[in-house]
Computed example of a mutant assay.
Amino acid sequence: MTKLTLGAHPFLLGFEQLERLVERTAKSGNEGYPPYNIEQTSETSYRITLAVAGFSISDLAITVEDNQLVIRGRQQDDDEGRLFLHRGIAARQFQRSFVLADGVDVGEAIMENGLLHVDLNRQVPESVVQTIQIRRK
Protein backbone atom coordinates (compact mmCIF):
# COMPACT_ATOMS: atom_id res chain seq x y z
CA MET A 1 0.00 0.00 0.00
CA THR A 2 1.43 3.37 -1.00
CA LYS A 3 1.42 6.17 1.55
CA LEU A 4 -0.29 9.24 0.10
CA THR A 5 1.01 12.51 1.48
CA LEU A 6 -1.06 15.65 1.69
CA GLY A 7 0.88 17.45 -1.05
CA ALA A 8 0.54 14.47 -3.39
CA HIS A 9 -3.24 14.01 -3.08
CA PRO A 10 -4.73 14.06 -6.60
CA PHE A 11 -7.45 16.62 -5.72
CA LEU A 12 -5.02 19.13 -4.17
CA LEU A 13 -3.27 20.58 -7.19
CA GLY A 14 -0.52 23.10 -6.52
CA PHE A 15 -0.36 22.42 -2.76
CA GLU A 16 3.00 20.63 -2.79
CA GLN A 17 4.50 23.44 -0.75
CA LEU A 18 2.01 22.85 2.08
CA GLU A 19 3.76 19.69 3.28
CA ARG A 20 7.14 21.47 3.34
CA LEU A 21 5.52 24.30 5.29
CA VAL A 22 4.15 21.91 7.92
CA GLU A 23 7.55 20.25 8.28
CA ARG A 24 9.29 23.62 8.63
CA THR A 25 6.82 24.67 11.31
CA ALA A 26 7.37 21.47 13.27
CA LYS A 27 11.15 22.03 13.19
CA SER A 28 10.97 25.69 14.18
CA GLY A 29 12.13 24.89 17.72
CA ASN A 30 9.42 26.82 19.52
CA GLU A 31 9.58 25.90 23.16
CA GLY A 32 7.27 27.19 25.87
CA TYR A 33 9.07 30.51 26.34
CA PRO A 34 7.81 33.15 26.13
CA PRO A 35 4.14 32.34 26.62
CA TYR A 36 1.79 33.79 24.00
CA ASN A 37 -1.85 34.19 23.02
CA ILE A 38 -3.40 34.27 19.55
CA GLU A 39 -6.79 35.93 19.28
CA GLN A 40 -9.10 36.73 16.42
CA THR A 41 -9.96 40.42 16.72
CA SER A 42 -12.33 40.62 13.74
CA GLU A 43 -13.43 38.56 10.75
CA THR A 44 -10.14 39.33 8.96
CA SER A 45 -7.67 40.25 11.71
CA TYR A 46 -5.70 38.53 14.44
CA ARG A 47 -3.43 39.55 17.31
CA ILE A 48 -0.47 37.63 18.67
CA THR A 49 0.50 38.67 22.21
CA LEU A 50 3.78 37.57 23.78
CA ALA A 51 4.68 38.02 27.45
CA VAL A 52 8.10 39.71 27.21
CA ALA A 53 8.55 41.19 30.68
CA GLY A 54 12.10 42.42 31.16
CA PHE A 55 12.69 43.02 27.43
CA SER A 56 12.93 46.52 26.03
CA ILE A 57 11.90 47.44 22.51
CA SER A 58 15.57 47.48 21.47
CA ASP A 59 15.91 43.86 22.71
CA LEU A 60 13.22 42.65 20.29
CA ALA A 61 13.20 42.08 16.52
CA ILE A 62 10.26 41.17 14.29
CA THR A 63 10.81 39.92 10.74
CA VAL A 64 8.81 38.16 8.04
CA GLU A 65 10.81 35.55 6.15
CA ASP A 66 9.13 33.41 3.48
CA ASN A 67 5.61 33.81 4.92
CA GLN A 68 6.94 33.10 8.40
CA LEU A 69 6.64 35.70 11.16
CA VAL A 70 9.72 35.46 13.39
CA ILE A 71 9.91 37.28 16.72
CA ARG A 72 13.30 37.27 18.45
CA GLY A 73 14.31 38.56 21.84
CA ARG A 74 17.83 39.02 23.17
CA GLN A 75 18.49 40.87 26.42
CA GLN A 76 21.72 42.73 27.00
CA ASP A 77 23.84 41.25 29.78
CA ASP A 78 24.10 43.94 32.45
CA ASP A 79 25.03 41.70 35.40
CA GLU A 80 28.51 43.13 35.78
CA GLY A 81 29.08 44.32 39.33
CA ARG A 82 25.82 42.80 40.61
CA LEU A 83 25.67 40.09 43.27
CA PHE A 84 22.48 38.03 43.14
CA LEU A 85 21.42 36.24 46.33
CA HIS A 86 18.68 34.55 44.33
CA ARG A 87 18.14 34.70 40.57
CA GLY A 88 14.68 33.57 39.55
CA ILE A 89 14.22 35.88 36.57
CA ALA A 90 16.00 34.35 33.62
CA ALA A 91 17.58 36.67 31.07
CA ARG A 92 17.49 34.36 28.09
CA GLN A 93 17.00 34.81 24.41
CA PHE A 94 14.08 33.42 22.46
CA GLN A 95 12.73 32.94 18.98
CA ARG A 96 9.05 32.38 18.18
CA SER A 97 7.90 31.53 14.65
CA PHE A 98 4.41 31.67 13.18
CA VAL A 99 3.58 30.56 9.63
CA LEU A 100 1.41 33.07 7.79
CA ALA A 101 -1.04 32.08 5.09
CA ASP A 102 -0.87 33.82 1.74
CA GLY A 103 -2.66 37.14 2.00
CA VAL A 104 -1.91 37.66 5.71
CA ASP A 105 0.05 40.85 6.33
CA VAL A 106 1.74 42.00 9.52
CA GLY A 107 0.27 45.27 10.72
CA GLU A 108 1.72 47.11 13.69
CA ALA A 109 3.57 45.92 16.77
CA ILE A 110 2.88 47.54 20.13
CA MET A 111 4.70 47.10 23.45
CA GLU A 112 2.44 47.61 26.47
CA ASN A 113 2.96 46.63 30.13
CA GLY A 114 5.44 43.84 29.34
CA LEU A 115 3.30 42.46 26.51
CA LEU A 116 4.23 42.61 22.84
CA HIS A 117 1.17 42.77 20.56
CA VAL A 118 1.59 41.99 16.85
CA ASP A 119 -1.45 42.64 14.68
CA LEU A 120 -2.12 40.60 11.54
CA ASN A 121 -4.58 41.38 8.74
CA ARG A 122 -5.94 38.89 6.22
CA GLN A 123 -6.77 40.24 2.79
CA VAL A 124 -10.01 38.74 1.48
CA PRO A 125 -9.55 37.89 -2.19
CA GLU A 126 -12.31 38.71 -4.62
CA SER A 127 -14.30 35.75 -5.85
CA VAL A 128 -13.42 35.21 -9.49
CA VAL A 129 -15.39 32.96 -11.81
CA GLN A 130 -13.62 32.08 -15.02
CA THR A 131 -15.29 30.30 -17.90
CA ILE A 132 -13.00 28.13 -20.02
CA GLN A 133 -14.03 27.67 -23.65
CA ILE A 134 -13.82 24.17 -25.06
CA ARG A 135 -12.60 23.92 -28.64
CA ARG A 136 -12.60 21.10 -31.13
CA LYS A 137 -9.41 19.61 -32.41
Results as ranks from 00 to 15, higher is better:
D119Y: 08
E43I: 03
Q17G: 15
D105E: 13
I62S: 01
K3T: 05
A109T: 12
I134Y: 00
G54Q: 02
A51P: 00
K27N: 07
I71A: 05
R24T: 03
V22Q: 12
A61S: 14
E80L: 15
L69R: 00
K137S: 11
A53T: 12
S127A: 13
R74N: 07
T5K: 12
R96F: 01
P125C: 03
F84Q: 09
D66H: 13
D119V: 01
N30L: 02
L116Q: 04
V70H: 05
L6G: 03
K27S: 06
R122P: 00
E65T: 11
E39T: 15
E39V: 14
S58Q: 11
A26K: 07
Q75R: 09
H86V: 06
G54D: 03
Q75H: 01
D78P: 02
L18G: 00
I38Q: 12
I134K: 08
L50F: 13
V128R: 09
V104C: 07
A90Q: 08
H117S: 02
I57R: 14
R20S: 02
N121Q: 14
Q133H: 12
Q40H: 04
E112M: 07
N113P: 06
R74C: 02
E112A: 06
N113G: 01
L116G: 04
E65L: 08
G14L: 05
L83T: 15
Q68G: 06
A109N: 11
D77H: 10
I57P: 04
I110M: 06
S58R: 11
G103W: 06
E39S: 15
R82V: 09
D66F: 12
S58K: 08
L120V: 04
R87M: 04
K3W: 12
Q76F: 08
E23W: 09
P34I: 04
